[in-house]
Design a protein around this nucleic acid. Sequence first.
DNA 1: CCCACGCAACTACCTGTGTTAACTCGATGC
DNA 2: GCATCGAGTTAACACAGGTAGTTGCGTGGG
Lengths: 240, 240
Amino acid sequence: MIGDLMMDSNAPLARLVRRLERYAPLPAADRQAILALPAQVERIGRGRRLIDEGQQDHAVMQLLSGYACRYGLLSDGQRQITGVFVAGDVLGVRSGDLPIAAQTVSTLSDVELVKIPHTAIAALAESRAAIARALWNESILDANMACDWIVSLGRRDARGRVLALLQELTARCRDAGLTIRDSLILPLTQEEIGDATGLTSVHVNRTLMALQAEGLIDRVGRRVTLLANRPPAAARMLSA
Amino acid sequence: MIGDLMMDSNAPLARLVRRLERYAPLPAADRQAILALPAQVERIGRGRRLIDEGQQDHAVMQLLSGYACRYGLLSDGQRQITGVFVAGDVLGVRSGDLPIAAQTVSTLSDVELVKIPHTAIAALAESRAAIARALWNESILDANMACDWIVSLGRRDARGRVLALLQELTARCRDAGLTIRDSLILPLTQEEIGDATGLTSVHVNRTLMALQAEGLIDRVGRRVTLLANRPPAAARMLSA
DNA sequence: CCCACGCAACTACCTGTGTTAACTCGATGC
DNA sequence: GCATCGAGTTAACACAGGTAGTTGCGTGGG
């Protein structure tokens, strides 16, 4: 009696299906299996931890709205953000064999998310190759984004790192439909931008002011607009 | 007629089996399937590229001996190494859906490796859940190591980054049986250490000299020994 | 044999970023 | 209506690390 009627595209799990089909379509039976997963929608406030480093029993979650970030801490208490998550992103993905979360994930804003017991996801991945592959894709993309971040941190100066972060955020928010013409409301305080770029909040401020003075970005309160680093002229001509 | 006799543990593919069983054993049939994979052993000299960023048709490889690294380039030609690979590590792992290599991989020394066509691996992962999961594990670990690297680059000073690199290399070489009492022959020039840590070769040199003067490391030519950052006293007592 | 070359080692000088310490402004709460 | 707090902003100063050179050693090639 559930069957096809459950294909309601407003259901939170429909969004997970869409996400997992980003790179390759899933068999209809796999789609149904995902929609039938036991899931729970939660609202959580800003600054709450979703996954703790070293913790064993976490669930797979998909952000429906809001922002979160993953970070590591050093023994002296310094924090480094290693990834930002926007609506649509999937957190806590792991195979069944590596039970320990490597880093902490916490919310940057109030969020809504769907939570699925890890055992249910693992069982699906075990029996359905296409779903396993889609989850695997998430891990690969995660690694790729992390590598890009390493390049930024290692070889760009403050200006370049802040710009790269703004560009990445803009691009990801655009994909999630959260921007208006390359303008978005920054989910990060300047302190948090510093934690993401390996700078101090003071220097982040200096850098943002400089970027604004140069006309590369526009800022009104928390709303930031990227004015430069549009595709270079040649590429713009192609799409115009 | 092949069957069990192929379980010769000297065969290069036996090492791949061992690697993929690091976290969970594989069914015997899966082990056999891996051993039956079409594979090709190659020797390649130092400084050769194994995978090119943006290239489509690369194979899955396992290093049998030697060292390699993955890196990204900036438009101004600066290079940032995002990962070092030692004997036993698997390169070019990806699901079937994301056909493009995100970064370049090249050798740091003369290497021996087994090369397996990607299509053969993908077919195995498609039909054998345990193998898919083992490959997925490799991607997850890759992402985890990248995140640790981000923390180092963002929040540690030169001393901390060089130490962290030496510790990681020592640990991984130890797992591969390449160390004698925390001492290993560095596969990286100081310039390459700089590319990995986001420093210049000049400053890497300063830092290494300082670490040696402080008695944290010992160096004879390219052979480096970690003297400090052994497990802290409490942990040592447990294992003693 | 000598030359070229890559790599390590070292120096002097310069600059980007961290540090510290103000001050402003709004929001929140009592 | 005042105290409090978090976020952003600015300034002065210090230092880690970059830049640009030179030296010297070892190795491999002609």
